[in-house]
Design a protein around this nucleic acid. Structure first.
Lengths: 229, 229
DNA sequence: TCCGGCGCTGACTTTCGAGTCAACGAGGGG
DNA sequence: CCCCTCGTTGACTCGAAAGTCAGCGCCGGA
């Protein structure tokens, strides 16, 4: 039936347009932040007319809401996969770190939006960000509860606080990268970050009595200080 | 000289007014966030006329800037004291945690503003928050560098990443409290938080041998479940 | 080639809040 | 007791950006 075919093709083009605009929104959002983001900018970035944005999205809020949901949804599902995997705690934590830093490597701009803008901006009021944090922290808390039940967690540690600390570590590290306070190019810091995060979280920062023990042969133990002024 | 006396008294009253408005600004800011904050709200909260705000402050930006500087400045100087104290790493970390959680206990509203609004909102554009984060992370990074030089830090840990993880842990825990995801009243969680943060950061989350021994077979390809239940 | 619909356009309207300013009145000095 | 100063007031101006809409022109079909 031609009608179906045509309408299908039309719908496909529609979706393309939507995606174009959405991608442009991410771009502008990453560059100028939530407040500095004007619909006119999004339209220009997408190469479409101002009014068209309102054809595809009810208003600015809905647009930004969708930008967020897309990005956050993807991130969340990966985190959830990692946290709910059937694996030892160590592997789960490593995977969580991996999800985060890999996301940054692949799409720094998208991470920037999530970490710096969405996580704290009143887009749909506060409910949104509150829900988002509650979601991650909830998932990770449950991971630690299970770990505790299995005896993988050191005694006396409150799962909810562990979750806050783990996610906080991840998030602030990403913030450091995103803001340029940590330089990803420097001595493979980005690659190192994932392993250090896992290691520090599991075994702590304290020097061991027999310090000098290494899990793995690493060639360059000396890293120049990464400090931005 | 009466003139001096009068002008002094006048100046004192001036400062009172300024403080009243500043305090009102913190209030409104905590309640409605940076974006929802209108000068009209601040004026109403302070019980003064709209125009008077502009007598005491150049513009909205300056007003909010001062709100931040006051709060952040106090926080920073305490953190700096803790990080630069002449004490073992463990004590410094404990003090940093203490500064944060104590601040929350005393003035949740102020912490709310700092943690949820200031830390991530484009107030004076981005420069502000970038500077703020750079400042804390810089101070804490230096703390870890000194610790490493003294042999207090486990080998292979990058100070800048340690700093991001420590501060991230603190910040996300506070976020949890501020957002009500962590309940401070619950079994003394607030008091516990400080100790757990220190303990976990220094010694890790991994169960100790007496908790039940786990081996970390990183390279084992078996993703199959670990039998312990 | 002509027609008709609709995706698309961007100028216009509306809304909203920052920042201004002319005037008011309390209170102190002459 | 009056006037003058200046802190204070809040209605107004102005600009910026969200959101609307009347019509244009592209494209597919006749």
């Amino acid at each position: 039936m031609p009608g179906t075919k045509a309408s299908t093709a039309a719908e496909a083009r529609d979706q393309d347009r939507r995606k174009t605009i959405l991608r442009a929104a991410v771009e502008v959002f990453a560059r100028k932040g939530y407040h500095g983001c004007r619909i006119a900018d999004v339209a220009r970035e997408a190469g479409v007319a101002y009014g068209l944005v309102y054809h595809y999205f009810k208003n600015k809020e809905e647009l930004l809401q969708l930008v967020f949901e897309t990005g956050w949804g993807g991130f969340m599902s990966r985190i959830r996969d990692a946290a709910e995997a059937n694996a030892p705690l160590e592997q789960k934590i490593r995977r969580i770190a991996q999800v985060a830093f890999e996301a940054y490597r692949i799409d720094p701009r998208g991470v920037r939006v999530l970490v710096l803008e969405f996580a704290r901006s009143p887009s749909t009021g506060e409910a949104n960000r509150r829900t988002a944090f509650a979601e991650v922290l909830g998932v990770i808390t449950r991971m630690f509860e299970r770990a505790r039940a299995r005896g993988e967690l050191r005694a006396g540690l409150e799962p909810a606080l562990c979750a806050a600390m783990l996610f906080g570590s991840v998030e602030m590290s990403l913030t450091g990268f995103v803001m340029g306070l940590l330089d990803p190019r420097e001595s493979g810091l980005l690659a190192h970050a994932q392993e250090q995060l896992t290691s520090l979280f599991l075994d702590g920062a304290r020097a061991t009595p027999e310090d000098g023990r290494w899990k793995k042969d690493r060639s360059a133990p000396r890293l120049k200080t990464v400090k931005r002024s």
